[in-house]
């Protein structure tokens, strides 16, 4: 037995501090290994060619449903209210507000009839989890609201969920960017219920809470409505990168 085991030596203190040091080193190493996830405005989303619906692998079913302790990268489904049901017959997307000269009531087929786009992006939650390589197919918010004829009062877009509680908003400029879409398909499959079926907002430049699920209404307004989490202190502009680096 060496000096280490002299009776009464405070080995525990050293072990405690050693564990904290090892933990800090582990955290630093993990951050370094995730460095590619630090996005910038140039790489946050990548346009991908449209394929036939349902032809790409359904990785959602693999990574969405089964937590895997060795591979924790999966969606964690969040909701602050009961998940609204969906009926193709009665479902409508309402597009209205003082910033529009007309209003729209769109069936799901009317929404998907707008020009389709697809983007590959990393879905980032503000709490720290992310899912890489999500291919979202949908229609641009820009195309939908422009169809109702923007007027001079159009400054912000409020998105409301069919759950009657969750809302969020984007500035008109953000909502009209290429990346802001109303998505109805993830990785080749229609959205599952917990993912926002049939339609959710995806804006990969910002954290996931900006992407309202089960979206049922777009209101174009002259003033900003604070979203559900923003009323509770979250950032209004939840960029996943330093927004001061945004150009153009």
């Amino acid at each position: 037995m060496g000096d280490l085991w002299v009776p009464g030596k405070p080995i525990g203190r050293r072990l405690f501090l050693g564990l904290l040091g090892a933990g800090a080193a582990g955290l630093a190493f993990t951050k370094w290994s995730y460095r590619a996830d630090d996005a910038d405005s140039g790489n946050v989303a990548e346009a991908v060619p449209l394929g036939p619906m349902g032809q790409t692998p359904d990785i959602e079913s693999l990574i969405g449903q089964h937590p895997n302790i060795l591979y924790p990268e999966r969606f964690r489904y969040y909701s602050v209210a009961d998940i609204p049901g969906y009926s193709e017959r009665s479902w409508r997307l309402i597009v209205d507000g003082e910033g529009l000269d007309s209003s729209l009531r769109l069936r799901f087929n009317d929404v998907t009839a707008f020009p389709n786009v697809a983007y590959r992006s990393t879905f980032r939650c503000v709490n720290g989890w992310r899912v890489r390589n999500c291919v979202w197919r949908g229609v641009r918010v820009r195309d939908v609201i422009d169809a109702a004829h923007l007027n001079r009062r159009a400054k912000y877009v409020t998105f409301s969920s069919g759950d009657g509680i969750y809302t969020d908003s984007l500035s008109l400029q953000q909502a009209r960017s290429d990346h802001a879409i109303l998505a109805f398909e993830l990785n080749g499959s229609p959205l599952i219920t917990e993912q926002g079926r049939p339609l959710r907002v995806i804006f990969p430049d910002m954290y996931g809470y900006k992407g309202v699920k089960w979206v049922r209404r777009l209101e174009v307004k002259s003033h900003r409505d604070l979203g559900f989490w923003e009323q509770r202190g979250w950032e209004i502009d939840a960029y996943v990168y330093n927004p001061s680096a945004v150009t153009g």
Binding site: L15, K31, S33, D37, P72, N127
Partner: peptide, 30 residues
């Protein structure tokens, strides 16, 4: 020691919107 780890990584997750995403992701994993 694990409790300190939970509190530190939890604070990093809680303040994730003000941090580089790689750091809040590392905190979430840990």
């Amino acid at each position: 020691a694990a409790t300190v780890g939970f509190i530190v990584t939890g604070c990093l997750m809680w303040q994730g919107e003000h941090l580089p995403t790689s750091l809040s992701e590392a905190a979430d994993s840990w």
